[in-house]
Each structure stands twice: as structure tokens, then as C-alpha cells.
Amino acid sequence: MRAKFLFCFLLWSLLSLTACSNPQTQESIPPTTSLAPIGLLPNIKMPTFGGIQFWADRRWQEGWRIQQHVFSGEHRLLDPKQVRIAWGSLEACEQRMKQRAPAPPIEDQTLVILLHGIADSRLSFWRLEDKLKQDGWQVAALSYPSTHQSLQQHADHLAEVVEHLRGYRSVHFVTHSLGGIVVRRFLADGGVWQQRISIKRIVMIGPPNQGAVFAEKVEAFPPYTWIFGDAGKSLTPSAMKSLPAPEMPFLVIAGSRGNKDGWNPVLQGDDDFVVRVEETHLQGETGHLLVKGLHGLMMNNNGVIAATLMFLRNGKVMDQGTMSGM
């Protein structure tokens, strides 16, 4: 028993001394930098899922991110391969990020932020993200616990990430479903980020801009609340009435079946099974396009990707006929 206790104590001590150290060489860490900033906990580098539904991004820097757990409140630092490099307090993880993450761009650039929909993850943008990078864009696909916090909390976390961006002067947003509503709440709230960052263009894919009748129909159904939480309640038509439209150019892309019945027999009119086409419209939209497809698969459609790239490049809206032919 005594030998086992001694072994555990020595192992814990070793982990404490080596927590979050450089996986390759200690020489890459500046000699004036502490190897274990106060507030970090003993860490074993381990792969993660990148933060699906239980983690909110608090900081982002060149593919590295600091996330906070929705229940425990703990923070962790992930590298671009989703490996946990550190965990503990926000301040300690920030210090470690400064040591390990690539430096922000010297010249102010434009960042494309991807924001996923409800009960989804940033991995849903895998193909669109890859195409954006091939087109030369800097891309940040963010995570947020869409089913475990309110719309306001999601918007607050987004504002915090944007406020702490370095090396970027402007941002484009590409959103799916609830992600578009989070951005609208974020823009309506404003904040300190407006002193440095300007929002240029937005592409909303499958957004319930008028609220979703489908959400209203199932709102009183207990499993809906259990699964989608407070954010699900914010998707009803009544909840959308007080939310203003963006002031900058924005493109709306709606999913459809291409007929008057749509995919969902419960909904009237054409739809993507979750959101009706007419619910995606928003006053002031720069353009409105239709793509044949289901709600959860739209973001990686060839036509959607091509229309997104065109709009971000020059603000032009793709011809509907061209998009339909892709």
C-alpha cells in the first residue's frame, strides 16, 4: 500500500512539473517564460473531439483555441489537431497560448468565422472550410454549446472571441441555422469589439430569420426542451420579432425541395424539413438563393459553397440558374 501511494505521489509530482510543456523541445519556449503558469493543472496531452455541445470557445488564435466547459467551468487549450495542451484557469491558458500558438498576422487581415447550427458542431463545415482555405481565406470555425446555453450567452461568447482577435481588422461570417441568429444577436448588442473590428459580409445558410413554425409546434413537447434547451425556445416566430436585421450586406441561402409541399409534411409550403423557405427571408437581404437539399446537409453543397465564395470575394450574388445547375 505504501509503495503504491509513493508511486502515485511521484507520478503526480512529475506531471505537475511537466504540465503543458513543449512536446518537442524546451528550447522553443523563451527562457524568461514559466513552464507551468499559475492556474494550470497537471496535464497529459490527449486528443479530444474539439468541443461538441459541452464546450464554448473563449479565445481563438491561428487555429488554437481556449474553451470553457459548460458545466464545470474549467478551461482548456487545444491545438489545431484538437489535442489538449493545457487546462486550468482562463488566464493561465491564455499565457500558454501566447507561448505555443503561432503569432497573429503582422498586417491586419480579414477572418472568416464559421458558426454552426443547433445540436451540431463546427466539424459540420468540413468541406466549406476546406474550400475557403483553398480560396486564400483565413478561417476560424468556432464551437459553442448550442443546446446547453441561451441565445444571449452564445452571443456574449462570440463577442468575447471577436474582441480578443489580434491581427485582424475585419470579419466575414458564414453561418448555418441558429448560427445566423446568434450573429444577429451579437450585432444587435454591439460591444468593445466595434472599436477595432468591422463586420463586412454575412452568408446565412438555412436561417430561421422569421422564426421556425416547426419549433413553435414542438416547443411544448418536453423532449424538444430537453434536447434543444433555451436556445431552441429562441427559434420561434414570436422570439424573432424583436431581433433587428444586420446593417451590412448579407446573403440568405434557403434549402428547399423545389415544390409547394416541401420535405416536411407537417409544414406548409416549401422547406428544408426544418425551416420553411419563407421563414429564411429577412428585410434588407442583399440576395436570396434556393438550393435543393435538407437542412443539415446544405452547408457543404457545391452550389452553396460556390455562392458563398463569390459573395465573400466581391459582394456579388450568384445567379439562381447557375447555382441550381451545380
Rank of each mutant, 00 (worst) to 15 (best):
W193N: 03
N302Y: 05
K217I: 11
F221N: 06
R276F: 02
Q283T: 15
V192W: 00
T308I: 04
S242R: 14
I199S: 04
K241R: 14
I205P: 06
V274W: 10
W193Q: 01
V275N: 02
L282D: 02
L282C: 07
G191C: 04
P246I: 15
S242I: 09
M299P: 04
T308S: 10
V252G: 02
G287L: 10
M248V: 15
G258K: 12
R276M: 13
N209D: 02
T236I: 09
D319Q: 13
H288Q: 11
G191F: 07
H288W: 11
I199M: 08
G287Q: 05
G258Q: 05
G211K: 07
T236D: 01
P249E: 02
V266G: 02
L290S: 03
N259D: 15
L187I: 14
S238I: 07
V266K: 05
Q210W: 02
K292Y: 09
D189W: 11
R201I: 03
L312F: 12
S256L: 08
E247G: 12
N300S: 07
V317I: 09
A212S: 15
P246S: 08
L289I: 06
M240D: 01
T280D: 09
N264G: 05
A215C: 14
M240K: 04
I253S: 09
P222T: 10
F250L: 06
G255P: 08
F186E: 00
V192A: 15
V304H: 13
K260G: 01
T236F: 10
Y224P: 10
A307D: 09
V275P: 06
A212P: 09
I202M: 13
S198A: 12
V252Y: 05
T225K: 14
L282Q: 14
T286H: 09
E219H: 13
P222Q: 06
E247Q: 14
I227S: 04
W193I: 04
P208L: 12
N300Q: 04
G303T: 04
A220H: 14
K217V: 08
W193S: 03
E279Y: 05
P265M: 05
N302F: 04
V275K: 05
I253M: 14
I253Y: 12
F273H: 13
L267W: 01
V218S: 04
G232V: 06
R257D: 01
P207G: 15
V203K: 07
D230Q: 13
D270N: 09
K316L: 09
A254Q: 03
F186I: 14
F311W: 11
M204P: 00
N314I: 00
I305F: 12
D189P: 02
L243W: 12
N264I: 02
L187K: 12
R257T: 00
V213L: 14
W193M: 04
G229Y: 08
K241F: 02
V274K: 10
A212D: 02
F228V: 03
I197W: 10
F221R: 00
N301I: 00
